[in-house]
Design a binder for these strands. Structure first.
Length: 433
RNA sequence: UCCUCGGUAGCUCAAUUGGUAGAGCCACCGGCUGUUAACCGGUAGGUUGUUGGUUCGAGUCCAACCCGAGGAGCCA
């Protein structure tokens, strides 16, 4: 007699009454003398497999009682709906085979501390929360690619090894590059996207970026993923419109596909359902006026994390802050024609205190302006020679933004710490596993 | 780099004013036919981060260092 067909746990409900094979790992076991409840996970879900001693016989029952948590197992049995089973469906075991043991599996059933969990991230990944987060992350990634594809953007990935900083200030990871001296891991693909936008019109890159900042907070990783669209002929308003539609599309997609995961994460979907255009848009000046009451805030300085939280608390939708003092923005930002002190940049602050998820704006298209900026900020002109070429040959208005994937996933999932939003987080004092 | 908090069993934590180191989980043994991080009983498990100091006596007080967490700055 042939083996019953292999069915994913997620699809078991459609196979009620049938005999099936489930392949997976033992997530937990609850036992009494004559009855085992084996919780089997297969990556798509967890199902309760009920093994009664009278049904499987004393030998198989003994096998089941010896199974370690996370042992690899193959279970065959009949699918039945039962209100007592978590998820409403369970498997009545006819046979169970231990494919591989998992003696002394390090992760317990009770809580662990962050140090222990991060040191065992390769195993922690198997738990409920991480798998739910990784599924949401996958949805966000697909929503990003689909959104840009539908709008006519071409994916053009930027190099990861770069000759110099894209933006002068932040620290870079350095690597030896043969006879050419030092190279650096990219901290933004934007400058390359500006070149690509002049070739294809609408482009985006999506890949890992690296920051060697000595940041030690829940909002920082040294390696994170960033998506950076860039659009020829786009103004600041176009960039803000794009960011608004973009965030709506991502959140909508997660609400469509990941309700169960959000529930696993105990993430209330109600605030996400309110993410609809239009988003509030205020100028830096208006933001500064709101923060003026707060002691310590000086006009002209960048917004700190507590400032962002205080501002975003006033809104249920992402908050767009535009037209910043040019000193706090990058050298390539276009100036406001109405006020030369202001740069045409925009930051988008996620609601509920999750902080900045987007930074972008309109780029300067004037060659003369950029040459002056490089001199004033003492940036090496030879490193930016190719970039200046973009202004020498058919320069047009253009703009774009960068969205931090992990911050977006953390916001949507309601994660307190970015380290949960990426499979294997890289942080200041952590490179293992 | 700076500020704050922490480090006790494999894991999560407790230990009164300085007075002989304790629980749950995990492991192992036993009990229980519908469990929901199952439950009940038992066994095993410790150089209290390291070094030095104060004291009759230090997990507890002091100093330095190491490691971790949260935050600031900077940023996505």
């Amino acid at each position: 007699m042939p083996d019953p067909p292999v069915v994913a746990v997620r699809d078991l409900k459609q196979h009620a009454g049938e005999t099936v094979t489930v392949r997976g790992w033992l997530y937990n076991r609850r036992s009494s003398k004559k009855l085992h409840f084996l919780q089997v996970r297969d990556g798509t879900g967890i199902v309760q497999a009920v093994a009664g001693i009278d049904d499987v016989g004393p030998e198989l029952f003994e096998v089941a009682s010896r199974l370690d948590r996370e042992a690899a197992i193959v279970v065959q049995g009949s699918v039945s709906t039962d209100e007592r089973a978590p998820g409403g469906v369970e498997l009545h075991v006819q046979s169970v085979e231990c494919v591989a043991p998992a003696q002394d599996y390090p992760l317990g059933k009770k809580d662990h501390g962050p140090d222990f969990l991060l040191g065992h991230r390769h195993l922690w990944l198997r738990s409920r929360r991480p798998t739910a987060v990784l599924r949401v992350r996958d949805t966000v990634i697909r929503a990003i690619r689909d959104f840009f594809h539908r709008r006519g953007f071409v994916n053009v990935d930027a190099p990861i090894l770069t000759p110099a900083a894209c933006e002068g200030t932040t620290t870079l990871f350095e690597v030896d590059y043969f006879d050419l001296g030092k190279a650096y891991l990219t901290q933004s693909g934007q400058l390359y996207m500006e070149a690509a936008a002049m070739a294809l019109g609408k482009v985006y890159c999506f890949g890992p970026t690296f920051r060697a900042e000595k940041s030690k907070t829940r909002r920082h990783l040294t390696e994170f993923w960033m998506v950076e669209p860039e659009e020829a002929w786009a103004t600041l308003d176009d960039v803000m419109d794009l960011a608004e539609a973009f965030l709506c599309a991502i959140v909508e997609r997660v609400l469509e596909e990941n309700r169960a995961d959000l529930e696993t994460l105990e993430r209330d979907p109600a605030p996400l359902e309110k993410i609809q255009a239009p988003f509030p848009r205020i100028t830096y000046d208006e933001a500064a006026a709101i923060l003026k009451e707060k002691a310590g805030f000086e006009y002209g300085s960048d917004l700190g994390a507590p400032d962002e939280t205080a501002l975003s608390a006033k809104y249920e939708r992402p908050l767009m802050i535009h037209r910043w003092p040019h000193e706090v923005k990058a050298f390539y930002m276009k100036r406001d024609p109405k006020n030369d002190k202001l740069a045409l940049g925009v930051d988008v602050i996620a609601p509920e205190g999750f902080g900045e998820i987007i930074g972008g704006g309109e780029r300067a298209s004037s060659l003369e302006f950029l040459e002056r900026q490089l001199r004033e900020q003492e940036l090496p002109e030879e490193a930016f020679g190719w970039y200046l070429d973009l202004r020498r040959y058919g320069s047009v208005p253009h703009g774009g933004f960068g969205l931090g994937l992990e911050r977006t996933v953390a916001w949507i999932c309601g994660l307190k710490h970015l380290r949960e939003a990426i499979p294997f987080p890289r942080m200041l004092t952590r490179i293992y596993p």
